[in-house]
Structure formats: structure tokens, C-alpha cells
Design a protein around this nucleic acid. Sequence first.
DNA 1: AAAAAAT
Length: 632
Amino acid sequence: MRTSWADSVANADSSAVAVGASTSTTYANAADASAASAVAAPRPGRASYVPPHLRNRTASSEPPVPSPADGSSAAKLPPGPAALSGGNRWGGGPSRDMGRAGSVGGGQGTGGGWGSRSGGWDRREREVNPFANEDETTEAVFDGRDTTGINFDAYEDIPVETSGENVPPPVSTFSEIDLGDAVNENIRRCKYVKPTPVQRHAIPILLAGRDLMACAQTGSGKTAAFCFPIISWIMRGPPAERQRVSRTAYPSALILSPTRELSIQIHEETRKFSYQTGVRVVVAYGGAPINQQLRELERGVDILVATPGRLVDLLERARVSLQSIRYLALDEADRMLDMGFEPQIRRIVEQMDMPGRGQRQTMLFSATFPSEIQRLASDFLSNYIFLAVGRVGSSTDLIAQRVEFVLDSDKRSHLMDLLHAQEVNGAHGKQALTLVFVETKKGADSLEHWLCMNGFPATTIHGDRTQQERERALRAFKSGATPILVATDVAARGLDIPHVAHVINFDLPNDIDDYVHRIGRTGRAGKSGLATAFFNENNSSLARSLAELMQEANQEVPQWLSRYAVARSSYGGRNRRTGGARFGGRDFRRDSSSRSVGGGDYYGGSGYGGGAYGASSGYSGGYGNPGLSAWD
DNA sequence: AAAAAAT
């Protein structure tokens, strides 16, 4: 029965529990120890941990390497370059490897060794410090608002729900999930004090080798939640070997996301997490020259972050092979399907050379769980754990929602009033960051032009702009240089832009879920935000769902909007409550054929009042405003 | 109907 790679890992972990627990001093109690054993067992102990770039040194002075556990884990790898014996990490040639070993060995005297400042994996090209820009840009401009970027107090009462077989218990501190000095140092640099809810739950699950289907918003620390385990697994795994003759890259992890900017964002974050670990992260997306991406790939890649189209291109050119993939993460899966990526995703996952379900570890993140997502999950995942994490705080507290009746012809002047009104509110006399959503690309351009003509520093992001323009616009906005960003739905989901004070729906979307995603660009990571919508006759199809949503979030619903809602009561906009959009979503295995062995006892007993769980109308009790789930 | 994504 237990035949999958993930299961083998799980078995290896449980057999190693005794060792892990007896040698560990980190864990305070039995529950933590069992959680920790799943986490720490595969390696014999911190002292013997060896980072990838030192793993193949043969000099006697090197730290003890391949533990028995590492060996067994290597044995379970799917066939491919990663499983080949010997070799240096990037196969850059013997002489280069010798030089590298020598230089690192020389620095070893400090005792810092691989964790030390100089610890690049290749002395010829020093790894760019991904933390370098942080202080001058964002924090300087927004100085005084916060320093951590995350309001941890807001995390305390977030509802979390898990289901599946043998769910590893959550951890409560990063020290319980010790990921090695280098990663710990990066956690410190990121100013992460303690794990967020999604991290507390997802990291042990992923470190235990389990597949995961999860519901969580980007601002909740989701990327770190799936990256830390991936980095950790890669670091303790066998070295990757690049085949010297071919120019094909063999990443061991693949992260797919729907938009270019989201891929860029994930890449930036992941680079921080893997800084000085020797784990290479490369991003590939369209709209940018492919040559530079090819060069990056040639230099070696452990974690590839990509949009589907560019990846297919790379696969067709045979510049990337998926045969070494052991970790697959699909971010914003529902969005990718909305955008018509399903054929490409299925091609990538099922029809190329990627190891099959069970031979790899797969994590799927989605805001909603329509049947297409369910099919995808049952095709891609193996005995997975379902995890749903509530919003950081509730929208009641964090996003104040206003709806104003504004005719199309009055929208511009009304917008100007809003912008004038808040000019004084920005830090240091600067305009607070304002994100203005419009319906069309043309509309975005013309509104931006109009704003600029009227003295408002605005820029725009949409699909008709070149990738360079898109990225420049986003940077200018984030830095505060251009505090007004006019955007189409390209920016609606997933993008984590800190400090957005105000989201204005200049044009309302037709779909309430899109509205929820848009306003979710503010009030992020526990901060408060304001969302203003311009409503008129053209939006009457949204009236009812909008009114309901606002009511659920304890927002004041204008009388006129209620009247629209009643008038249009037969129709609430497409997708108005897609079953899984509320908190908790649902683990659809409950009512599907795949309700599997041993799961019975679990499904009855969710700690969160299980009964409400499958009912689409249910789940009104308990958590503030569960209906307002701005899942990203 | 519009948006996004490979060239």
C-alpha cells in the first residue's frame, strides 16, 4: 500500500523518531518532540549538517557528511541527474571545483564555515545580497509605520483547519523547525520572529514529505511556508549535477504561478530564504528576453520559478528537464485555470519528464475549490493533507469598505476628490499608496494619462505594457516614487505590495471574488486599509453579492445599495459563493470517492465545528467574518 | 466582455 516516495519518506521519519528525540535538546515536550522528529530526523543532528556546496569535499577536515538517513533518502530519489553519484554541485569542471573547495576550506578556520559571510558557492561570482536594497527604499519611505512588516498580534486568533491522514502537529517557533544556520540567519534577516499560522502548520507537513493542498493568502507567509521545506530538503539531499555536455538544466523544485509579476515576487522572496545556502533559485517568465534566463539556467538551478508559457518554451527547447523534480508547487491554482492554463499545466506535469505523483512532493495553493481544481488535485496529489488558514485578522477590522454611487461621467472628478483628500495622510507628506482598479487596459492608460496631466504622480500596470514597463511601474509604486498605480486585474491577485493604504475600484469587477481579491491588496499582513468602490447602474449585477459581503464584514451598507440588491435578488453575480470560497474551503475528499483508508475518524472531528464544513450556506458561526475570505 | 500568458 505504501508505495509512494512521500510515504517512504514518512516511514523513514517515523523509524528515526527515537534517535531524533533522544539526541534533541530543543523540544520542550512530547508533542513538540514528535513534531520535531518528523522535521529533524532525516539528518543526524545539527553538528553534522552539511550545506550543498560543501557536501562533496573529500578532504579529511570537512564535517561529517552523508548520514545513513541521507543515504536512504537519496536512494528514494527518482532516477535522474540528481541521483547520479559523485560530481560537484554544478559540474563546472574539476579545476573550478578544486578551487572552490580550497577557498572555502581556507575560510573554514573561522568556524563559521559554510554559514560565514564569504560562503558563496562560487568565489568567482559572489551571490548578490537579496537583502541589500531593503533599508533604503521601502523602510526609509515608510519609516515609522512598522519595522517588521508583519503585525504578529493579528495572527493570534486566525482559524486554521487541517484534514487528512496523520497530520503532523504544528510547531510554534522557528527553533523547533531548525533549518540550519544559513536559513536561520535568513529568517532573522527577514525579521521573522515567529512562524505565521500557515507556516506553523505547513512546514511540518511538508518536512514530513506529505503532499499539501492549501488555502492561504500571500501576505500570510505562504511563500516561506513552502520554500523553507523545499530549501531544507534540497540542502540535505544529494548534490545536483549538471550534465556537462548538454545545456539542459535539471531543477529539483518547480514553482508555477499565473502572472509574471507574481513569479518575480516569489523569486525575490525565495532568494532571500536561500541566501548563502548554496541553493540556486532561477525565475523564467515571458515578456523578458529569454537569453538572460537561459544563462541563469546554465549556471545551475535548484528551484525554478516560472509562468507556464515560458516554461513550456524552455521545455520544448530542451533547456530545462523536469526529470529531477522532487518538489512541485502550484500557486494560485484556480487563477491559473481561470486564465486557461490547464492544458499547459497538465502538459508540464503529466506529459513531460516529470516524476509522477507520489514520486515527487506536490503542493497546490488555491483560493477556491471548483470541480476543475478538485480534478487537478486528485490527478496531481497523493494522499495529501488539506490545510485552510483564515485571513490575517478579519476584514471587519482591517479593511474599511465604502461604496459610493458615481456615474461613469463623474468618476474622474470623484477620484480626484479622494486623492486630494488623502494627500495629507501619507507619511512624510507623501501621498499614501493608492491602487486604482479599472476594467480595461485602454481605460488604465487613459486614466493614468489624465491623472498625470492633473498633477497626480501615477503609473499603470496592465497586459498591453511591455514587461519592462510593468516592472518599472510596480517598482515605482512600491518605492513610493509614483504613489498611484492604475491597474487591471493583472494586479488583483497574489501581489504583495506592502503599505497600500487605499484600493479604489474605479470600475467594479463583474465577479464578487475578483472584488475580494482586489481589496485584499490593502489591509495586508495585519495592517488596516481602506477600499472604496464606485458603483452605478452598470454594476447592478454585483449589488446583491456586494451588499452581502459588506454585511458579513460588518460594513455599513448604503440604503441605495440594498435597494439595488433587492431589485436584483435573483442574480448575485457569477461565482457568488463557490462552495470553497468561505473560510475552511473544504476537503472535497469528504464526499468524493477518494475518501480513503483510515480517514473516517478524522473527518468527523474537525475542531472547528465540523458540521458546517460541507454546507455551502453554513459556516457563519465562530470566526468573526468567515465569509470574507480574501484568499489569494 | 476583459484580462492574463510564449514568440
